[in-house]
Computed example of a mutant assay.
Amino acid sequence: MSALFPYALTTGSVTVRVSVSFQGETSDPSANRWFWIYHIRIENDGDRDIQLISRRWEITDGRGAINVVEGLGVVGEQPVIAPGAAFDYVSGCPLGTPSGRMVGSYGMVDDSGRQFRIGIPDIPLLGPAVSR
């Protein structure tokens, strides 16, 4: 795993790499609001175009409460990723606790119309006061 993307998961010929950083300047612990930015790279090592159609996240806060987030695409896009190419995006995650986790999957379709899911690695969300 690279230093830029410390979390990675490969499903078939697609690898999802993730980096995450706590955002102290946009967090407000006195209001029980902690915020992280995550950068995702989806790499297509297969021999067909693939398109990201949907996402499903399970976000667990430090108390164990799970919030499921589902929807079409990511950051308003449903990108097509050619063989040997990658798609990057950045998004954010607020929590009501100083720690938590995110894990999920993407719904994909290849250029033959075959639908499949790829996993997103388990991502720890650790604020500055949480021991690593």
Rank of each mutant, 00 (worst) to 15 (best):
I59Y: 02
D122Y: 12
I81D: 03
M102K: 13
L9R: 11
G12M: 03
A129G: 04
Y7G: 04
P124R: 07
A86I: 00
R114D: 14
I40C: 07
L126R: 14
L52W: 00
P6E: 05
G24I: 05
I66W: 01
D47N: 13
A85G: 00
H39I: 08
V109N: 02
S99G: 00
R17H: 05
E43L: 11
S21A: 14
P124Y: 03
A3R: 06
R101F: 10
S131C: 01
L9A: 12
L4Q: 14
E43A: 13
Q78H: 05
I40H: 00
R101S: 15
T26L: 08
G84H: 06
G73Y: 10
G107K: 06
P6L: 08
T60M: 14
D28Q: 12
W36M: 07
P29G: 08
A86V: 01
V69R: 12
G84P: 11
R114V: 15
F22E: 08
R33N: 11
I120N: 04
V109H: 01
G12F: 07
A65F: 10
V90C: 01
D61A: 07
V16L: 01
R41W: 00
R33W: 09
G119Q: 09
P94V: 04
I123Q: 06
E70D: 14
V16C: 05
R41K: 12
P124C: 09
N44M: 06
P121T: 06
G76Q: 05
D88L: 12
S27H: 04
V68L: 11
E25T: 14
I66A: 09
H39T: 13
P98Q: 02
D49V: 06
V109T: 14
S91H: 10
Y7W: 10
S19H: 05
I120Q: 11
R17I: 00
T60C: 05
S105E: 13
D122P: 00
T15Y: 01
D110F: 11
G84N: 06
I81T: 03
S30V: 12
E25W: 03
W36V: 04
I120Y: 00
P6C: 08
Y106M: 09
A86M: 04
W36K: 07
G119K: 04
E25M: 09
P98W: 04
P124H: 06
F35W: 07
I53C: 10
D122N: 13
G24V: 04
